[in-house]
């Protein structure tokens, strides 16, 4: 592990200045991913700027009826918040499906969004990875791809994919379905970025996970008021019943009136470089009858462009029928629930 300096500024503004001024500096929040990466040599910062006590740990009501979640709010506190449980149950379920009780006590809202892929090759500095070292190549695309993307992976001129990693967050999946907005503070002022635009697709530069600039700090995540979210859920399929990353996951919210779907929010986890808002599936669902055929059509619409990987070590073509089945069972359950 490379040596680094640990600093603890007095204010968020000082913290932002410290990171903005030093390209070798990074923020430290809950540490559950960063400390892991320090040990692996995946992260080699010169300075850790400790945010403890500098970001909000409050979940506040917004005037429009939405919620503002401080970046320092622990995953467990957010999952336990009565307003989240009542008005955005899919978010509480996603949080509770993530990691373990201990990790949820440590991980923060901001850190959860900024956690990096769990691609085994990304985490192993002895194998090539375009995300870790741009231009180095990708060991995953012809390797073990069980936890890798089937959607949204761009190819280079030779037809090779730059990066097939997935974003591992559970929390972000319902958040993106609910049109959450990320509040940022930076050296050049504050800005708000819709969560759906916050995480990037890999394109030709997978080293950048998000649109965040050096020194920019996530200060909060805003959830808009969203009545349909009160009937939301999160369904995660994994290789173990608990304490495992998603093979695929589905966050969904639907409103059904007289057998017709009047509103639908759908997002997928574990299948793309970012939490995947399933807009095509939503389009199919809105106005359609709440039937098996509709659910399958919604899945097929979203999966039409899926590009699963077939490799010697274990491909991920199974994720296509898996995601179809997971979306179907999730929508069926939601539609059957009485409001």
């Amino acid at each position: 592990m490379k040596p680094f300096v640990h600093v603890r500024p007095d204010s968020a503004a000082d913290a932002i200045d410290a990171v903005a001024a030093d390209p070798d500096a990074v923020f430290l929040a809950g540490g559950t991913n960063l400390v892991d990466h320090l040990k692996l040599g995946v992260a080699t910062p010169g300075t850790l700027v400790d945010l403890r006590g500098l970001t909000s740990t409050a979940v506040e009501d917004l005037p429009d009826g939405g919620l503002r979640i401080g970046a320092g709010v622990r995953n467990s506190d957010l999952a336990g918040d009565p307003r989240v449980r009542r008005d955005y149950p899919g978010l509480a379920m996603a949080l509770l499906a993530g990691a373990s009780g201990q990790l949820r006590n440590q991980a923060t809202t901001g850190g959860n969004l900024l956690q990096r892929t769990r691609c085994a090759y990304f985490q192993d500095v002895t194998t090539p990875c375009n995300k870790r070292v741009p231009g180095q190549g990708c060991a995953a695309r012809d390797g073990w791809t069980r936890y890798h993307a089937i959607l949204g992976a761009a190819q280079d001129a030779a037809g090779l994919r730059h990066c097939v990693a997935t974003h591992p967050s559970d929390m972000a999946v319902p958040m993106v379905a609910f049109d959450a907005v990320v509040q940022l503070a930076g050296p050049d002022g504050d800005r708000a970025v819709p969560l759906g635009e916050f995480h990037r697709l890999p394109g030709d530069d997978p080293s950048r996970d998000t649109v965040l600039r050096q020194g920019e700090l996530v200060t909060a995540v805003d959830l808009p008021p969203l009545p349909v979210a009160a009937r939301s859920t999160y369904r995660k399929v994994r290789d173990r019943a608990s304490y495992a990353f998603a093979l695929v996951s589905v966050a969904a919210a639907v409103a059904v009136e007289d057998g017709t779907i009047t509103d639908a929010r759908v997002a997928f986890g574990g299948v793309a470089h970012r939490p995947w808002r399933a807009t095509r599936a939503e389009e199919v669902l809105r106005g359609a009858p709440a039937t098996e055929d509709t659910y399958r059509a919604a899945a097929d619409a979203e999966l039409a462009d899926a590009t699963p990987l077939d490799t010697e070590v274990g491909g991920n073509a199974f994720k296509v029928p898996l995601l179809r089945g997971t979306l179907t069972t999730t929508l069926r359950r939601l539609a059957e629930e009485r409001p």
């Binding site: 640990h6 603890r8 430290l28 540490g31 559950t32 400390v35 892991d36 850790l48 400790d50 403890r52 467990s76 009780g101 201990q102 990790l103 006590n105 440590q106």
Partner: peptide, 13 residues
């Protein structure tokens, strides 16, 4: 007061 994994917690923090 909370259950925590201290392999991921830096002592200085």
């Amino acid at each position: 007061g909370r259950r925590t994994l201290i392999c991921l917690a830096l002592a200085v923090a």
